[in-house]
Design a binder for these strands. Structure first.
Lengths: 135, 135
DNA sequence: TATTTACCCAGTTATCCGGTAGGTAATATA
DNA sequence: TATATTACCTACCGGATAACTGGGTAAATA
């Protein structure tokens, strides 16, 4: 598994927020209920997105979360990298070069690197807008 | 992580066997030492490959393992699927359709399926021969 | 018969995912 | 001012899985 529930939840929340009235703040409780995600678990995810400037958060009554860019301003990759940390398909490429002592003679390393670039390119080519429209 | 050490070890072993004199049986001990893999752990991996007919095994003195096809006869995908079980990047596509109750309205599902096909196509397009030659 | 090999089964340890519990700080409304 | 509503913070927990390890048994050759 390259993407856990954390990342998948994050994407679904971003899509949900994109579908709300422009400018409105949506409380976490509403998002959690609509998307059937554990409220407490979602808190941690939203905090990550908020700190990274992906969403705008407002405390108190009438507060909640909202997007601060148009949906096409968010790539799927940018969101997943936040919640997942790394999207590398193998630890060989995830932990930087020379993490593996055999990296200089590993016959498979070039393949892993190629796959890594392919996956990264894929995720960077899809935006929240694309998920909305089903493109 | 989509591919664990198990799958990566399996690939390295296949490449190692492909580099040995044609027809020769190589004992597991030798493979483990050359590739710096735990002998006991490698046993489990070789048994999987042997049962699936990927390698030929012979007991007793002078025995060991050898390939039974030319290197281009093994796709990376066919080996990884054996040791990893599934190469799906998300559980949404790994556990078959309708594993997730939201699959009929999930805005991200088409993307996961597309990625799934892309990764599968990638692994099926690379053979042990390619790893040998560094193509 | 002894040695070399593959094969089988049952632990073990550490890590991490997914989720929970209980609080504090900020904002709005009555 | 008091109260309700919201985001944010720290800590914990149970189960699953990865990556081994140990102790055997069965088959083949010298």
């Amino acid at each position: 598994m390259i993407v856990s529930t954390k990342g998948r939840y994050a994407l679904r929340v971003m899509v949900y927020l994109a579908q709300q009235p422009p400018g409105a703040y949506i409380p976490l409780k509403q998002v959690a209920e609509a998307e059937e995600i554990s409220q407490k678990y979602l808190e941690a995810i939203m905090t990550i997105l908020s700190k990274a400037g992906m969403v705008e958060a407002v405390h108190g009554k009438g507060g909640g979360y909202r997007l601060n860019r148009p949906p096409e301003g968010y790539t799927v990759g940018s969101i997943l990298k936040l919640t997942e940390g790394s999207l590398a398909p193998v630890s060989c490429t995830a932990e930087g070069p020379a993490a593996c002592s055999r990296s200089d003679c590993c016959p498979a390393l070039p393949m892993w690197e190629k796959l890594d670039r392919m996956i990264d390119g894929f995720f960077e080519s899809v935006t929240i807008r694309d998920l909305l429209t089903g493109t």
